[in-house]
Nucleic acid binder design. Structure first.
Length: 300
DNA sequence: CTCCAGGCGTTCC
DNA sequence: GGAACGCATGGA
């Protein structure tokens, strides 16, 4: 297991408890929250990250290997944030495993892992992840964030933290009750009816997330894809980020291009091991980093 | 004005 | 089965 010390503290300015973690390896808040897996955390003025998950608000400060969870005590850490942030996973072991499975196909994966060494796959809530990735289709991240933020403000439970009001992600029942008219103010476009179909199925017990967490991959995928507006891509994202199934490997147009570029002879998606989805995130981040560097170069 | 955004459903062959 | 095409919306 990852070994670091856990100390409770107090933030006098905000008058909230804190949890200090040190030294934490393979964690970078910027990489983790800015790699398209999470839509409810944002960088704030002082460089820390702040957001809402599991109906709670959290601020995360990072100085190298020192992590400060602001607005959390030890119990919050142990019951919510340790799992959410993936801090109970041994990323050293995971990276070794990924190397074993992908290394056969060349060393791109090692470059990607070096580039994105601080990414952790967040273990979010199933309903929120499913709904969020339905909204992500044919859409861009700033607008996805805006839609979700506005919907939370309109339909979610208020949360008071740091002297402000935040809003939890709305539950499926509330969204059902809102109906298509109630969702209209959030400007989801053609995705609104998809979200409603998912909410309806969830409310009627057709989506048993605890069962889907452990069911065979194809079975889980099939159930998720029975929702109108959920295809292979959205299903795999819901599985990876919401059901915490790290073998799920989302392939979209971007990823297709990345795979064709680095693995022109193809790679057997079924032989990539239990952490293929984490590897996917490394590759995605790596490629995005490289193309943004290219654009910088062109500008100069 | 056009183009695009980590897709998907429908409609053709 | 697989290649087109439309889809709502807002930002560049």
């Amino acid at each position: 297991m990852s070994e670091f010390s856990v100390c409770e503290g107090w933030d006098a300015t905000l008058s909230v408890p804190t949890v200090e973690l040190f030294p934490v390896a393979f964690f970078d808040a910027a990489q983790t929250f800015d790699c398209g897996q999470c839509f409810r955390f944002d960088r704030i003025a002082d460089g820390s990250y702040e957001g809402v998950a599991f109906g709670r608000c959290l601020r995360i400060r990072q100085e190298g290997a020192r992590l400060t969870l602001v607005g959390a005590n030890r119990a919050d850490y142990e019951t919510i944030w340790r799992s959410f942030l993936g801090l109970d996973e041994d990323y050293g072991m995971i990276r070794d495993d990924i190397g074993m499975h992908f290394g056969l196909y060349g060393n791109t994966i090692y470059e990607a892992m070096a580039c994105a060494s601080g990414i952790r796959i967040l273990r979010g809530e199933p309903w929120e992840a499913l709904c969020s990735f339905i909204l992500s289709q044919n859409n861009n991240i700033p607008r996805i964030k805006k839609i979700i933020g506005n919907m939370a403000e309109g339909l979610g439970e208020p949360i008071t933290a740091f002297g402000k009001t935040y809003y939890a992600f709305p539950c499926a029942e509330t969204i059902c009750r809102a109906g298509i008219e109630g969702l209209a103010p959030y400007r989801m476009g053609f995705r609104a009816r998809y979200v409603l179909d998912a909410a309806e199925k969830y409310r009627q017990g057709e989506l048993d997330f605890d069962a889907l967490r452990v069911a065979p991959y194809e079975q889980t995928e099939k159930v998720l894809m029975s929702i109108c507006g959920v295809g292979k891509k959205v299903a795999s994202c819901a599985m990876l980020y919401g059901l915490h199934r790290t073998e799920a490997f989302p392939v979209d147009v971007w990823m297709r291009r990345v795979l064709d570029k680095y693995y022109p002879d193809g790679l057997d998606l079924s032989s990539l091991g239990p952490y293929a989805g984490i590897a996917q995130q490394y590759l995605f981040f790596y490629e995005r980093e490289k193309s943004s560097q290219e654009r910088e170069k062109k500008r100069a």
